[in-house]
Simulated scan of single mutants.
Amino acid sequence: MTGVKQLYDYHLWANKRIFNHIEGLPKETVYQEVKSVFPSVCDVLLHMCTTDLVWLRTLSGAAYEEVIESAGKFQAAAKGDMKAIKQQALELETLYLNLFSRLADERQTISFHPPKYGKLVTTYADVIQHVVNHGTYHRGNVTAMLRQLGHPGVPTDYVYYLYEKKESKG
Rank of each mutant, 00 (worst) to 15 (best):
I18E: 08
A104D: 15
P155T: 14
D105C: 03
E23F: 09
G153D: 02
L90S: 07
L7P: 07
V30Q: 00
Q129S: 15
K27Y: 03
I85G: 08
Y64K: 14
W55Q: 11
I110S: 03
A104M: 05
Q75K: 12
H151K: 09
L92R: 09
A77T: 11
E28Y: 05
G170N: 14
L90G: 13
K35D: 11
D105N: 06
H21G: 09
A63P: 15
I85Y: 07
E28G: 04
A144S: 14
L12C: 10
T58L: 12
P115V: 11
Q129P: 08
V154Y: 02
G150K: 00
R107E: 12
K86P: 13
Q88F: 02
R17F: 13
F19P: 13
T136R: 09
Q108F: 01
E65H: 10
H11A: 01
F112Q: 05
S111N: 09
H47I: 07
V67Y: 13
Y161W: 02
Y137R: 13
N133I: 13
Y124L: 07
K119H: 06
H130F: 07
R102F: 10
Q148P: 01
K16F: 15
R139C: 05
M145Q: 02
A14P: 02
G24V: 06
E69H: 13
A14R: 12
Y10L: 00
V131A: 02
K169P: 04
G72M: 01
E91W: 03
H151W: 02
Q75H: 14
R139Y: 03
L53A: 03
Y161L: 00
H134A: 05
M145Y: 01
V67F: 13
L56E: 03
Y163F: 09
K16H: 10
I85Q: 04
G3C: 02
A77W: 11
L90N: 12
T58Y: 01
L120K: 11
H47A: 09
R17N: 11
E33I: 12
S168Q: 11
V54L: 12
K73Y: 12
D9R: 05
L120P: 11
H21E: 04
Y161Q: 04
V127C: 08
L149P: 01
P152I: 01
L97K: 14
Q87V: 10
G140W: 09
V127N: 06
E33V: 15
V121I: 14
I110N: 07
Q6Y: 01
V4Y: 00
Y117C: 07
R107G: 10
S168H: 10
T58G: 10
T50F: 07
Y10S: 06
H11M: 00
F38T: 01
C42I: 02
N141Y: 04
K5A: 04
E167Y: 15
I68A: 12
T143Y: 03
K16T: 13
P114C: 08
D105F: 00
A89N: 14
G80C: 00
H130Q: 06
K27H: 14
D81V: 00
E106K: 00
K83Y: 15
S101I: 08
H47F: 05
